[in-house]
Structure formats: C-alpha cells, structure tokens
C-alpha cells in the first residue's frame, strides 16, 4: 500500500526526467530528479511503495528509458494512468516498472489516497474509499516479458 501522487494528462518524459540529467544512466542519480519539472517536491515527499496516478498519454515525448528508471528508482511501486504513450509503455515493461491502464481508477483516486496495486492481475484498490478497479489486460505476449522480469531476462531465457 502506498500514497497516491495525482497528476494530470500528457505528463511527458521531459518533465519526468529533464534532458539536463541525461548525462548519466545511473538509477540513483536519475531518481534524485524524478518528476522535478512537474512537481519539485515529489522526490522529498515520495516513500517506497507510493503510486503515481495520472491522466491520459502518460510518458509522451522522448523515448528516454531514463524516465521509467527514474520513477522506479525513486521507490514508486507502480503507475496507474488513463492511457500511456506507447514508447513509455514498452520501456516500463522492459525495465520492470509496474504499470496499469485504468481510466476508472484514475477518476476515483484523489491525491494522497492510500492505494494498493497488483500489476500482474491489473487490479487497483483505493483503500481510502474501499473501491476496487480492474485495468486493461496486458496481451499474453507482453505478460510473458513481465513474468520473465523484463526484456533482458526474456531474451536471455530464449538463448539458453
């Protein structure tokens, strides 16, 4: 269970991790600037297990994989959004950041609510209100990559 950090539509990868920090690929260094240009207080306030909840087209813009890496590195347990930009979606799956697409849950979660997610089952629970939502089911092919623990492990498993 974690606290919801609630944001709007079109949260782009430039605000998730600004280009001025792309001079490193280190997860901890990136995490120190997660969401900095959207919410400068995010990094101070976020605790391990918290959830980012946002509107449509989350992660649009640049293909930088540093974006899901920074969010995950900051301790976020997962993202619930109304929809995802496609490159971010792939990057999150590949790097093991749990994501759920569920507009109904997004509409019913306020900033600061306590939220539990089960990304494999696609279930979002708002513990504050007691409501439960079922998100979009991932295609089987994509689920295989998630279950393998990310794309690196998935390719490894095919080659051994």
């Amino acid at each position: 269970m974690g606290k919801a950090f609630r944001y709007g539509d079109n949260v782009d990868t430039d605000v998730i991790i600004p280009a001025r920090y792309l001079t490193t690929t280190d997860e901890k260094e990136l995490a120190a600037h997660a969401l900095e240009d959207l919410d400068p207080t995010f990094v101070e306030r976020v605790k391990p297990g918290d959830i980012v909840v946002a509107g449509k087209n989350f992660g649009c813009g640049s293909s930088r994989e540093h974006a899901p890496v920074a969010i995950k590195g900051a301790g976020v347990a997962g993202v619930v959004a109304s929809s995802y930009a496609r490159i971010f979606f792939r990057n999150a799956i590949n790097t093991g950041l749990p994501i759920i697409e569920c507009p109904e849950a997004v509409a019913a979660i306020s900033d600061g609510d306590e939220v539990t997610i089960d990304a494999e089952a696609g279930v979002v629970r708002n513990e504050t209100t007691g409501e439960e939502f079922k998100g979009e089911q991932l295609p089987d092919f994509v689920m295989d990559i998630v279950k393998a623990g990310g794309l690196v492990e998935w390719v490894r498993s095919k080659n051994t």
Binding site: R64, N91, G150, V152, V155, N159
Partner: peptide, 14 residues
C-alpha cells in the same frame, strides 16, 4: 518507429 534502449539492445541481440 522509436523505442527505448532495452528494446534496441534486444534488436542488437536478435
């Protein structure tokens, strides 16, 4: 189309 680095690493491999 554009992808992230891990996807591209997999293309390098396969």
């Amino acid at each position: 189309t554009g992808v992230g680095s891990t996807d591209l690493g997999a293309v390098f491999a396969t």
